[in-house]
Each structure stands twice: as C-alpha cells, then as structure tokens.
Amino acid sequence: MASTKAKILNLVLKVWRQSGPKSEGKFVEYPAKGISTDASFLEMLDAVNEHIIADGGDPIVFDHDCREGICGSCGFMIDGQAHGPLRSTTVCQLHMRHFNDGDKIVLEPWRAQSFPIIKDLMVDRTALDRVVSSGGYVSVNTGCAQDGNSIPIRKRDADEAFEAATCIGCGACVASCKNASAMLFTGAKVSHLALLPQGQIEREERVLNMVAQMDKEGFGACSNTGACSASCPKDIDLTTIARLNREFVKATVNKHNTDQKLGDG
C-alpha cells in the first residue's frame, strides 16, 4: 500500500551470522539507512544485503518465497518475537512502519534442536514435513468437487477444520516455544482432518503416528504457555492442542482395546 506519509528510518540491525550448520555463529551489527516505512521487513533486508554485497561481503541468508503470507517459508526472530512484534503476521507481511527511527533490531534464527541452522537466519524445517508425511493425509478417493452441502458437516466443525487447515507450516510455534514443542503445528494438522468426513478412516492411526514422529524428531512437550498461538501468523487457537491431547488418548485407548480383541481371537 503506497502511502504519501512514508517516512525514512535509519536503523541498526544486530544479526545472527553463521556460515553453516556446524560452524560457530555470532551477532554482527549492520546499519540500515534510508529505509522507507512503506518497505516490508524483507525488502529492508534486501536493501541491507545490497550494501553488504557492494562492500564485497556475504549477504544475510533468510528463507522466503511468496512474500504474501501464504507459503510459510519466511520467519525468524525479531527482538525475541517470532515473525516480529505484530500478531497474526508473517515476517514478509510485516512493514517498517511498525518500527521507529533509531531502533536497534535483533534478528535471530528459529531456535530448536529439531531445526538445525542452515545458514544465518535460515533453518531446516524438514522435521515438520516428516511429521506431516507420517499421517497428515487421507487415502480415500474423494472424487471431484462435491455439491455444496451434499455431505452435511456441522458448521462449527467446518469452521474449525478450515481454520486448522490455514496453518502454513512456518514453524513459528516451535520457535517461540520455550520447549520447542510442535504441538500447535501437529494439533492443527490432526484437527484439520479429524473434523472432516474424509479424515475419519485414518483418524486414530494418524494421530498416533504423527505424535510418534513428533517425539522422534525431538520436539519438546507442551507447557501451555501460549507462546505458539500468540506467534502464529494464522492464529491457530491454543485449544487445538487440547484436541490433539483428546484425539491421542482416544486413539490410544481404542488401539489398546482392539489389540486385545485381536489377541483374544
């Protein structure tokens, strides 16, 4: 949105620089001069990188793709806040008008044992992909688009399934969590399918497998601090985690009962 009231900011960035997964990292300060308040945060970083390149340096590496808040590629910590100070926003949709002239901004990569740093602000989030592959799918053929309302779904379920499905897999929930827990992400993936008819067949197997994979990846447990939901660009609700807990217990109990029946037969 072009604004006629754009102002110019001069900032200092304190950025985590790390040349590779195994190397030592450190904070390096860079001036960010003449930044328009209309610029997005990533455009600001592009401008800083131009200067670094012109000076013969190594540009700051950060993940990004769509730059319109839908792909889930971008994300790092800005002053200790995942995706920056604004709620419901990815860092690519954060604009410089939310900062003040003279600010010193600290940029750190997502921190989690399961998200090894690739370079600078870019981390490897394939652990989340493996959680999804372990159960975040349906194997029934659902055919082509159905007539609206041919399969009645309770309005509340449809809404909550849709909201859960808006998770873009950015990893801010893991990053902002003091335990690096992936419960919000996994909860969203489980909820999205558990609430819809297509997801029923694998409902129990799904939650058991996704939780098993989540644990295997080394994500922490949930302490219900709410950091995840506060940082989530898609506002995935904290009660999504309660649903994950519920689905997990139900599936565990049912599996136990079926195993016993099969054992008896």
Partner: peptide
C-alpha cells in the same frame, strides 16, 4: 524440554507475544 530447545534466544519476547 531444555534439550529440545537447545540454544536460548538472546532477546526474550516482550509485549504482544
């Protein structure tokens, strides 16, 4: 949980988050 987190952040979240 501490092991899962690994490194702590240099700055702690304030305000909104």
């Amino acid at each position: 949980n501490r092991k899962a987190k690994g490194t702590q952040y240099h700055v702690q979240a304030a305000g909104n988050k």
